[in-house]
Amino acid sequence: MILYQAFVVGLAMAFGKWINAYGSFAQLMPFITYILLAILLGKNPAQALIIGAAVELAFYGVMQIGAVLPQDTAVGGVLGVAFALILNQKPAVAVALAVPISMLAVIVWNLLKFWFTANVEVFEKYIAERNSHKFNRLWWIQIGVYELAYFLLAFLAILLGTAGIKAFVNSIPAQFLTGLTVAAGMLPAVGMAMLLKYVWNIAFLPFFIAGFALAAYLQLPIMAISIFGIVFGLIMFFIDRDINNIKTDKKVSNSKSNDEGDFFDD
């Protein structure tokens, strides 16, 4: 039983990491992985979604910007949801496991990337040798190792960790779980702050206040706030375009008058 569970969680993890890289699809569809996980484990997919929502909320806003990966949300999410499903635990437990796991799992990616970096030289050598076959072989070996590494990570975590985590979860006092739920509710603040830091410009303050007020006072849903955001963005875009046109017009007329000056000087 546990062997089968470990195996399918490994498969779900491999799938999750595949769409992480393939076409950058994962950013938009982690819930697909959770549904797959629930079906493979023979659990209720709706329950997996509820647990997954709590986990994704804690990761909300934490996204790979540039080449920096602050947390491996795919690994944390799959393992957190898997443990909660297998042990029939509350969403808060999934969050408690997912967050630290996601932070630790970055090590695996760093190790893999280190190996890929060492292999760049080998790729260079194959090109110098004009060997397409070896070039492609190493390419697919790397992808295979990448997939296998995450499969094994999940497989071993479930196989060896479930008993320990069960004992750990059962020993958690009730008040600790409440604290955990509160902390999980506060966590999206970190993701929001990270996104703000990435795009922030003091000139955007009015739009920030508007978005906040629309939600806090008018209780508008996300979709409605997004539409208002698009309206603000478009207004600024057209204003900027007009300013830009005036600037270029000025440049053109300046250069024209210079031409005329030259003409009269001649």
Partner: peptide, 22 residues
Amino acid sequence: KASSIVGVTVVGGMIATLVKVP
């Protein structure tokens, strides 16, 4: 810049709806 404005507006809204300090 226009995309950033959409982002900042949405983040403002998300703070009020998704971050919970009960």
